[in-house]
Amino acid sequence: MASELNVGEPQGSRRKSASLGQFMQVLADITEPTVELAIRFCGWSAILFVLAIFFFVFREAFPILRGFDFHEFFTSAKWRPDSQIRPTYGILALLAGTGAVTVGSMLLAVPIGLGAAVYISEFCTGRRKEVLKITIELLAAIPSIVWGFIGVVALGPVLLYIKETFGFAGPPMGLNVLNASLILALMSVPVIVSVGEDALKAVPDSYREAALALGASRWEIVYRVLFPAAKNGLLAAVLLGVGRAIGETMAVLMCTGHAVQIPKRLFDPARTLTATIAAELGEAESGGNHYRVLFLIGVVLFAVTFLVNLLADVAVKGIRGSDK
């Protein structure tokens, strides 16, 4: 009996620790699926959020859609939401404004951005490359409100001076399509450079070596070999730049001059879709027609940028496909 007891005691403690272990085991068995479930859920959250953005923006715009005059919406340049007699919601002028500053900024940003990407990727190495990359990263980090501020206080007076000196046509102000285009170009260049550089880096070195062996100079390699090989990635870079330019809000709100009109010259003020939302949502009566139309513009913006990003994604997938 005594021996049994003696044996029993350590056995008991061992059983105790075993049960603790079992408890931990059970805990682990429960934890692991729970954690994995949380991870899976978070993983899917991106899809959820994209759908949620569309859903909630559309939900606020939805009540106005019954009997809404889409023809007027897209083809009239008369944006008069505050009119007491008959408010009109035509976004043609706003579309034109967005188009003007986007095209203007891309005309500057695409050649410079791709040129800088080529230079960083193919023509420089070591410390200089690091410094350039970091500077361009910093360029990307400057907040859009600061860009807008710079456009107003620094670029605006300069453009006004140029306009007055050389006698360009347009109202006497420094805030116009050109100002917004310049600012937007600087803002969207970093994304073009970094995506463009990635695209060039993705071209296998054997392509470069083969071209070198045939006697090509580095510039010839760039435009005869790398551009054709990386054209999808470069296209994606441009499209992402376009997406950024279309969606930019605070900088264009401050720099375009805020006039609802179809801009005809570089020195004309304009207004974009994004700036209109930013400027008017605060004053629009919640639940009113004006408020809902602004959300409808949001839906349009969402659709346009979604399309541009989708195209960019397809372009990138294109190079991955051809690499395999």
Partner: peptide, 19 residues
């Protein structure tokens, strides 16, 4: 979805936040 979420204009995010 991740790529597009990154590309959604900030003002649309604002509208989403309001909605």
């Amino acid at each position: 979805a991740v790529v597009n979420l990154a590309g959604v204009p900030s003002i649309v995010h604002a509208l989403f936040g309001v909605g």
